[in-house]
Write a protein that binds this DNA or RNA. Structure first.
Length: 928
RNA sequence: GGGCGUUUAACUCAGUGGCAGAGUGGCAUCUUCACACGGUGCAAGUCGUAGGUUCGACCCCUACAACGCCCACCA
């Protein structure tokens, strides 16, 4: 393809699939564990197999890919482990919903085997979708290693881990107060419960005191639980009630009597100071009952319905129905006191949304304290570091207050608990399915019906994916991982558990650094959610989406009102639809926006800004390719032939290279992205390419001028080198466009076949050139000042204007003289440079630095009044600056205490500013 | 009830004990031979409030305010 065929606008849709195929077929994403080079490994947080790629994934994975590609280009054996998670409760929610909608059935109607059969079919069908999406984003995951949390390897690892923990007494079975989700009919862990404040009531109920006409008033937000009350507690020191401790109360509606007990957990200040105790259905009450030996009566079953010993009248009612009935009956029988509106903190299942019922049940638990201790120490000793550091506290706080982890779930999709029971109730746990009871040798064994919490297998992921429990080469090479990149929302769920499991089973931390990403929100700072209609789908950014398509997706929202609101939001945020901007634009945006803040407010507009940058790079490259004729890449560049511009851009490039490397080293992704953005746009494009144009430009049909050819070849070389270096710097951020351009650039024959496998640029100190940078700064300042004058007086761009430059300093004057063409081309002027000279009548004037005067004759154009005002403002600014500096320098304490270089710097600034002011005053006076 | 974070230009955010920055948007102007997804220039700020430390504070300390997040068994 010839360079002239490059289109003016970069088209990612044509380019991206091509290079993706190229990288995949060449195996560039694969890392060999037997390679002698230094390993660098990251494990991708396995996305939910039910899911599709959302913006959180896109962000996290983009940052991981940047790290992986960057390290790979630095010569590391970089391995990025892909995989998906079986997400048992999420899959259940999804499949059961579908089952109900399509067939009107519950999972229990199908039975375990049939349900699992369908789950697997469904997993095979939709499970690869997310991997395909990850590929479209250009993520260089090692696909040959792709894993699933319920594949054979994971099964083996889970079984091994369970058996070992059980044998060590760290996994145990016990009857405890747990969180029951009546909708999914399973236990959930504390972490899977959200507390939400909801409008409810506080009911007062009066319990008659036995052998007295008095009544004791208790308050509750859940009156139906009184059917399971087995006592009432008061504070033992509460003078109002102290004498009642030991007496009994008649429990209305039940015919039972219950004791009054003393317990210090009661707050005498709250409510009536007397608390009804329902041990089987409230965690506090349960603890109280254990302390005070109260009876425990279960009156609610696993489906959330009332059961005996609640009176027959209520049996079978749901909790809500029972509440109404109990309140009505209490009122009718005169036991109901005041009823107040009340904000009730209500526990709801994160997944199903159902109100959590605290229940006393036999479940499997992991003893956490012994596992947490090493995980705490590892972070204390810095073997694993959190970035940003503030998350360390969050982790530590949770770890030091950790409670035992309930790992059994009454679901089917997941790892079945490897425990068997004989008719006598002995438990047998084993690596292989047992044939007889390990205690009584009975062969009538039945496996536990429950499965393990999804996070149990996730906790083993960093080493189970590398072959554990087998001692594999992959494990020795890639464990521990260098980095984990994930969202702060799963520090407890996942990060903490990997730390504990990794240390326990591998004896080493699973990763050296945990990098916590920001959370992506919409442009208003609201969490993206389907029901809000504000979700930006990464693939919509990549491929584009019409507003109609975006509105159509709100059809899924069942609630009409919510749907209308979502449509409105959709129109507001994506009024014109979403233009297809390519994976690179999205990747670069996410990296550039990932600052130290906790949120990234993403909008289409923002991505467009970075899409424009990609396009700018594309066009700069077009320009280069159009002007590289006759350039021989084998020859390299020769610094001895460099002009000031060449020296300057190479020096700047060296600085930027160092900046990018240092920023990535410190996980400052936005600094890295912005450094290169600024360099490409505002140094390479705005200045270097503009300065190179006169040299590169060969008039059409003209014969090559032998005198100019060496200079031209040097500029071509510098331009090609700078551009190629930028492509390598940018490649981790925007792999597709950089590969596309790089492949078109003329390269020496020794160049590798892909930009992906070139070396990342390193700072080259030979090119650092402070003198060139200073001189260029002067030329730029003068150019900008002249452009300002032109702009102020609306000098048409087509006019070339003569300008007098006066510089009393010989050094500066020399620089201006030697490089006058930089200013002349950059500001479209012809210069007359002298040490000093008369000021032309009817001219505009500006001063750069202490002594460089710019005088632009503007007969007929200059507005004396406006010029006076403008210069007057300049003088006022200088006065302010001078006053500030004089005040500081007049302070004896400042002179005495401030570092000498600061004092010297301020003195220089003061004298420069005074000189500048004098010249401005002179200019003003000349205006009359 | 504890803990954490944020507060800087119209918006989104960087920032450093020593001259307040960027991107976007705005205004003006330019279809100049890479790019209008562009060029050039301009405007825009009491750095949340009040104290303190310091020669010097946007930065460090204290208090307060607003907003946000996480954790927690108050019936």
């Amino acid at each position: 393809m010839s360079s002239s065929a490059l289109s003016k606008q970069y088209d990612p849709s044509e380019v991206e699939p091509r290079w993706l195929r190229f990288w995949l077929t060449n195996g560039y994403f694969h890392a060999d564990e037997t390679s002698p080079t230094v390993p660098y490994s990251i494990t991708l947080p396995p996305p939910n197999v039910t899911g599709s790629l959302h913006m959180g994934h896109a962000l996290g994975s983009t940052l991981q890919d940047i790290l992986i590609r960057w390290r790979r280009m630095h010569g590391f054996n970089a391995m990025w482990m892909p995989g998906t998670d079986h997400a048992s409760i999420a899959v259940h929610t999804l499949l059961e919903k579908e089952l109900k909608r399509r067939e009107g059935k519950a999972r229990f109607d199908l039975g375990r085997d049939e349900f699992l059969r369908r789950a697997w079919i469904w997993k095979e069908r939709s499970g690869s979708r997310i991997s395909e999406q990850e590929k479209l984003m250009g993520f260089s995951l090692d696909w040959q290693r792709e894993r699933f949390t319920m594949d054979d390897g994971s099964n083996k690892a889970v079984r091994e881990a369970f058996v070992r923990l059980f044998d060590e007494g760290l996994i145990y079975r016990a009857k405890r107060m747990i969180n029951w989700d009546p909708a999914s009919e399973t236990v959930v862990s504390d972490l899977e419960v959200d507390v939400v404040e909801e409008n409810g009531h506080l009911w007062e109920i009066q319990y008659p005191i036995e052998g007295s006409s008095e009544r004791l008033t208790v308050a509750t937000t859940r009156p139906e639980t009184m059917l399971g009350d087995t006592g009432v507690a008061v504070h033992p020191d509460d003078l109002r009630y102290k004498h009642l401790i030991g007496k009994r109360l008649q429990l209305p509606l039940t015919g039972r009597t219950i004791p009054i007990v003393g317990d210090t957990f009661v707050d005498p200040e709250f409510g009536s100071g007397a608390v009804k105790v329902t041990p089987a259905h409230d965690p506090n009450d349960y603890e109280c009952a254990l302390r005070t030996q109260l009876e425990i009566l279960q009156v609610i079953d696993s489906k959330g319905r009332m059961i005996a010993p609640a009176p027959a009248k209520y049996v079978g009612l749901t909790v809500d129905e029972a509440r109404k009935a109990v309140v009505a009956d209490l009122e009718e029988q005169g036991f109901l006191g005041a009823v107040k509106d009340y904000k009730v903190p209500r526990n709801r299942s994160q997944r199903s949304g159902a109100v959590i019922e605290p229940m006393l049940m036999e479940q499997w638990f992991v003893k956490m304290a012994p596992l947490a201790q090493p995980a705490i120490e590892a972070v204390e000793k810095g073997r694993t570091k959190f970035v940003p550091e503030l998350w360390t506290k969050t982790y530590m706080h949770w770890m030091t207050n950790i409670k035992d982890w309930c790992i059994s779930r009454q679901l089917w999709w997941g790892h079945r608990i490897p425990a068997w029971y004989c008719p006598d109730g002995h438990v047998t746990v084993g690596r292989a399915d047992p044939t007889e009871c390990s205690t009584c040798k009975s062969s009538a064994l039945k496996q536990d019906e429950d499965i393990l919490d999804t996070w149990f297998s996730s906790g083993l992921w960093p080493f189970s994916t590398l072959g554990w429990p087998d001692k594999t080469r992959a494990l020795t090479t890639f464990y521990p991982n260098n980095v984990l990149v994930t969202g702060p929302d799963i520090i407890f769920f996942w990060v903490a558990r990997m730390m504990m499991m990794g240390l326990h089973f591998m004896g080493k931390v699973p990763f050296r650094t945990v990098y916590l990403t920001s959370i992506v929100t919409d442009e208003d700072g609201d969490k993206m959610s389907k029901t809000k209609g504000n979700v930006i789908d990464p693939l919509h950014i990549v491929h584009g989406a019409t507003i109609e398509a975006l509105i159509e997706r709100t059809d899924e929202i069942p609630d009409q009102k919510q749907r209308d609101a979502a449509v409105k939001t959709t129109k507001k945020l994506f009024g014109k639809g979403i233009p297809g901007m390519g994976a690179d634009a999205l990747r670069f945006s996410l990296a550039a926006l990932n600052t130290s803040g906790r949120y990234i407010r993403l909008s289409i507009e923002r991505v467009e800004g970075y899409r424009n940058f990609i396009n700018k790079l594309w066009n700069a490259s077009r320009f280069a390719l159009m002007n590289l004729d006759g350039y021989d890449p084998e020859r390299g560049i020769r610094p001895e032939l460099f002009s000031l511009a060449d020296r300057w851009i190479m020096s700047r490039l060296s600085h930027v290279t160092a900046e990018v490397d240092e920023a990535l080293e410190a996980f400052r992704f936005s600094d890295a992205a912005n450094a290169i953005y600024h360099f490409v746009w505002h140094e390479l494009c705005d200045w270097y390419i503009e300065m190179a144009k006169p040299t590169l430009h060969v008039p059409p049909m003209a014969e090559p001028d032998p005198k100019r050819e060496p200079r031209r070849h040097t500029v071509q070389g510098v331009l090609a080198t700078a551009l190629e270096t930028c492509l390598r710097l940018l490649h981790p951020f925007a792999p597709f466009v950089t590969e596309e351009i790089w492949q078109k650039l003329p390269k020496p024959s020794t160049a590798p076949a892909s930009l992906m496998v070139t070396m990342f640029p390193t700072k080259d100190s030979r090119f650092i050139d402070d003198e060139a940078e200073q001189r260029m700064k002067l030329l730029q300042d003068v150019t900008v000042a002249i452009r300002m004058l032109r702009g102020t007086y609306n000098v048409p761009p087509s006019w070339s204007v003569p300008v007098d430059l006066h510089a009393s300093d010989e050094g500066r004057r020399g620089v201006l003289e030697r490089h006058r063409e930089v200013i002349e081309n950059g500001a479209r002027v012809t210069l007359n440079i002298a040490a000093t000279g008369p000021r032309a009548a009817q001219s505009a004037k500006a001063v750069v630095g202490a002594d460089v005067e710019i005088i632009m004759p503007l007969a007929g154009l200059v507005d004396i009044g406006a010029e006076k005002t403008r210069i007057g403002k300049e003088i006022a600014k200088a006065d302010k600056e001078i006053a500030g500096l004089e005040k500081k320098l007049g302070n004896a304490d400042f002179i005495a205490r401030a570092p000498e270089e600061v004092v010297i710097e301020l003195r220089t600034r003061l004298s420069d500013e005074q000189a500048r002011r004098a010249r401005l005053v002179e200019a003003l006076e000349q205006l009359g």
